[in-house]
Design a protein around this nucleic acid. Structure first.
Length: 468
RNA sequence: GGCCCGUUCGUCUAGUGGUUAGGACAUCUGGUUUUCAUCCAGGCAACAGGAGUUCGAUUCUCCUACGGGCUACCA
């Protein structure tokens, strides 16, 4: 299929999370794969909840993971604006057209009345449906309300007794009876458009030919199709991807461990790790190689999008993070770690240090911990360390100190000497030394660590250990 | 209530009218690493349930259960 434009159109009522991001990533990858363009549109028609700070944050997050849009806010394009709040005049012409053809009508039933009607319908076991009293109202009745200063909403006259069908690229052939649909609102009382209207109209006006979105929109699709058809506007292809849920199966939220993109950024996740993870949940890629954005696009297949929902799994994200860190060059690693290496003594080469610890870290703060333990802090006597040091005994460290004092040329030889002096061997010998010298039970190879931190620090630490 | 979507190891998933139902993550065991990580070898672990169609259903159909969505002057 030849596509030339996909889109992502968030409403700026909150921060981007992994669910949104995955949907936008799919759209982005399809655009890149097909040499099409990727459009970003901000759907800020809900004046109450939309905030500029959110749309700015969303843009920043998208850029951080590398989803640069070809058309939209900041970069521009053929449209007057990519913020719907600035496109209101544009919608006017369509309202007029619809009104002329009697395809929409004003409705003066208040929200309160609607609520009561709905409640009664549900209580009576009936489908909660707009009863349509205003759909047959006369000009006079309408005028009467207008004269009273009442503002109407406008409802779309859904055609009755027809079937609306479309081919969904993920879910397959879909078919809905319009009898199950009621006359939905296209324009609110404050004259702003509803999502159902603006979203569909804009996709068509902007030449979007693939609408890939969450499957929470699947049953909205027939309404949007009916609207577009009544206006003789072009229909896009549709692809509805299933939800990306929290680990408990509920929609992503703070409560089930959902992280915002800025959380991830702050924690030191690498964009490429996030991208590789997200490309493989709800979509199959045959291998487990860490791929570049371009490679991900090449591997993307709409037919490989899963139609069932998937759960967020931190372990799997972590797996890609490890791979991504491994894949970093020393220079890339340095800039990733910047700010965490500030306490490194001037005598220590940053690159050398990075090379030493790179395999042992997944996040920048772990590098900071190494700096701290190796160069800055006194020996941390947490429970685990204390146990190891105490079971080795004071005598052990005094003897070790003597050996090291006698000259440290080769760590392996030194170990042998300590072994001879103390009678300890294997783990008994090695762990206490590691803990004393590095302050941790784990970490890079000891001889390399010692090479980097120097004799003085080793002595200092053994001294400390001997006094515990 | 109506309409719609979904259900394969704990998780992400592959797969087929006849397979020992495959892989990855996690986990466990062993080896390498005098630690950890890495790496290597191996283990545990799944077709939601019930009917039907069929010589044979995880695969096709229907029902049920469970999860989710829409049914908003939210998107």
């Amino acid at each position: 299929m030849k596509l030339n434009k996909t889109r992502f159109c968030p409403s700026p009522t909150g921060l981007l999370h992994l669910g949104n991001l995955r949907t936008s990533l799919f759209s982005f990858l399809i655009a890149k794969k097909t040499n099409g363009s990727f459009l970003l549109r901000i759907e800020d028609t809900d004046l109450e909840r939309s905030k500029k700070e959110f749309s700015d944050a969303i843009c920043a997050d998208l850029k951080w993971v590398g989803l640069e849009w070809d058309e939209g806010p900041e970069v521009g394009g053929e449209e007057k604006s990519y913020y719907q709040s600035q496109r209101l005049e544009l919608y006017q012409e369509f309202y007029e057209k619809l009104l002329d053809q009697d395809l929409i009508y004003p409705c003066f039933t208040s929200e309160e009345e609607l609520k009561i009607i709905r409640r009664n319908q549900i209580a009576a076991g009936q489908p909660p449906r707009y009863t349509g009293v205003w759909s047959q109202a006369s000009k006079e009745e309408v005028q009467e309300e207008l004269d009273k200063g009442n503002k109407p909403v406008y409802r779309f006259r859904i055609p009755k007794k027809t079937t609306i069908s479309f081919m969904d690229l993920v879910k397959g052939e879909q078919s809905f009876s319009t009898d199950d649909l009621d006359d939905f609102i296209v324009r609110k009382k404050d004259s702003t458009p509803t999502f159902m209207f603006a979203n569909a109209i804009d996709d068509s006006l902007m030449g979007v030919d693939l609408v890939l979105r969450g499957d929470d929109h699947l049953s909205n699709t027939p309404r949007q199709i009916a609207l577009l058809e009544s206006l003789d506007l072009s229909l896009p292809h549709y692809a509805h991807v299933s939800l990306f849920t929290g680990s408990d199966g509920a929609p992503l939220s703070k409560r089930n461990g959902s992280l915002s993109i800025s959380d991830l950024k702050e924690m030191g996740y690498l964009p490429i790790a996030v991208l590789n993870y997200l490309s493989r949940v709800g979509h199959t890629i045959n291998d487990n190689d860490l791929k570049t954005q371009k490679e991900l696009a090449d591997s993307f297949e709409t037919k490989n999008i899963s139609s069932s929902p998937s759960k967020f799994d931190l372990d799997q994200l972590l797996f890609w993070q490890k791979k991504a860190v491994d894949n970093l060059t020393i220079d890339e690693c340095a800039s990733w770690l910047s700010g965490n290496l500030d306490d490194l003594p001037p005598t220590v080469q940053e690159r050398g240090f990075i090379e030493l610890i790179k395999e042992n870290i997944n996040f920048p703060n772990e590098a900071k911990e190494y700096v701290d333990n190796l160069f800055v802090s006194a020996l941390s006597a947490d429970e685990e360390n204390l146990k190891i040091i105490q079971s080795a005994g004071q005598e052990f460290f005094i003897l070790a100190l003597e050996v090291v004092n006698a000259g440290l040329s080769d760590w392996k030889q030194t170990c042998k000497d300590i072994e001879a002096r103390t009678g300890k061997k294997g783990k008994e010998l090695f762990m206490p030394l590691r803990v004393a010298i590095t302050g941790q039970t784990r970490g890079p190879e000891l001889d390399k660590v010692i090479e980097l931190i120097g004799l003085e620090r080793v002595l200092e630490r053994l001294q400390e250990a001997s006094q515990i």
